[in-house]
Design a protein around this nucleic acid. Structure first.
Lengths: 182, 182
DNA sequence: CAGTATCCTGTCCGATACTG
DNA sequence: CAGTATCGGACAGGATACTG
């Protein structure tokens, strides 16, 4: 991506997109989660041009989401398996799927997350691990972390220098606009 | 995106990417969540070329994630506010942020999700709304939904025609490979 | 089966200039 | 302030051919 080098590099969202922002990358990861490991299987599953697949796989390997592993040396063959980093991407994919099911599937979902034993469909929600409370506004807000740049601090408040610090979001950037803007 | 029309259109992940797959789109949504609504504010915040911003905003409006609203008619001015659909994107953005914080921020997070009152950092996990169980493999698996195509059914098992149907994932595509592949 | 090499097209994105 | 118009570069993605 050319898009300059980027203010946004500071933002963890932007950084993540930097790694997997390409369209195919996420679909490759999706298949990898399903246990696909071989070049040919990816290609058949995705119906992607072989050169593109090679490029995306290389990118994902370089980004540390996949690991290229020799599984046969007589004819030299590699497989591509998820790293821990890659496996951690699962909730993102499932969140995307949940959103798609909710908003883009009037005919009903074509892919759901289900309990592997009972088969009951899950309803994905993002919560805080400790308290179990849903991560929704306005109860939760994004705030600048310790490594934040000036720019991010300006936009996301200044009160979270460390875990547990009290937070009064009405300070820095635009806390809860809708009125007092510009 | 040219990428043909797509087998993947069936997949809710691919469909979602179809809407917001462009790099800037997610960053625009990120800012919109923070309360940014005006063209100029987006531009300053993102440091994006104005023509690109206009295009991305138009795309997001068309996709139904943002709503273009006239807020002044003397000089004709619009603001861009999140729709419900757009607001629903929050967990995805926060999941991306969580991943970035975990894997791409050795110096510590620059953006965290915090309790708006106490300031305590949240640790985002995706769980099932009803049971509260973390949505992780292998307890949960993606399965074909009622609207699934043949292709998806082949890949994701055939046992979830309706909510609560028992699921034995070792049937259709590649249930739990690692060995019995190709 | 698992790719590499080459060429082409579309478009994302950036830069700049211009308008009410 | 809120955009539109136009231009050019870089690269994602596609098609095809070729290798061990």
């Amino acid at each position: 991506m050319r898009r300059k080098s980027f203010e946004a590099m500071q933002c963890p969202i932007a950084r993540t997109l930097e790694r997997v922002g390409e369209w195919w990358s996420l679909l490759i990861l999706r298949d990898a989660m399903q246990g696909v490991t071989r070049f040919d299987d990816f290609q058949k599953s995705l119906d992607i041009a072989s050169n593109m697949l090679a490029r995306r796989l290389a990118t994902l390997v370089e980004a540390g989401l996949l690991e290229k592993r020799l599984y046969s040396s007589r004819p030299r063959r590699f497989e591509y398996v998820l790293t821990d980093q890659g496996r951690d991407f699962r909730p993102i994919l499932w969140s995307l799927a949940a959103w798609g099911n909710k908003h883009l599937a009037p005919e009903g979902p074509s892919l759901v997350i289900a309990d592997a034993v009972t088969g009951a469909w899950a309803d994905p929600v993002l919560v805080d691990r400790e308290s179990g409370r849903p991560l929704a506004a306005p109860a939760f807000v994004p705030v600048a972390g310790p490594a934040a740049s000036e720019r991010i601090r300006a936009r996301y408040g200044l009160f979270s220098a460390h875990r547990g610090a009290p937070l009064v979001p009405s300070g820095g950037g635009n806390g809860q606009p809708e009125h007092a803007a510009s």
